[in-house]
Amino acid sequence: MEKVESRAEVPVTLTINGETRTALAESRTLLAYFIRENLELTGTHVGCDTTSCGACTVLVDGVPVKSCTMLAVQADGHVVETVEGLDKDGVLHPLQQAFWDNHGLQCGFCTPGMLMTSLALLRKNPNVTEDVVRHAISGNLCRCTGYVNIVKSVIEAGQKMALEEV
């Protein structure tokens, strides 16, 4: 994306969950809304306006980003992953499975962001401790769970992912 004039709508093309998609966006369209409204992937949520809550966390080129604080035009040509890309052919990702098994979610609103942040963490190193997980998810707020079961879920998913790697 080179130049986008004020209020003009331009096509933004990105690879999302393995699929190449194009939709129109203004320069001021935030990536979170582009994903939710233009690409109709509503699993990514918006919970604040100060880049605090992390409900909108997606991976851009493998890195967790708060998609409410990135412009859609900035994602042009990049690779985006959202919660909808986690399960494969109906089989849950170990993280999804662990969140389910360990009651790692309640209202579910922060969950997509938690999952994406945790995914990037475990891809780097699946062997994580409680302390590592607590720090890694500290940009994602949850009001329901008190984090205990989220931490447990992430550790368990990591153990499973480590086994799968071997």
């Binding site: 699993g43 919660v83 999804q96 389910w100 009651h103 609103f109 997509p112």
Partner: peptide, 21 residues
């Protein structure tokens, strides 16, 4: 018992208010 609401929520398939268009 594992929660019955979870399979949709962990897939990002919950339907919250702002998802309604």
């Amino acid at each position: 018992i594992k929660r019955k609401e979870d399979p949709r929520l962990i897939r990002g398939q919950g339907r919250y208010l702002d998802d309604i268009v």
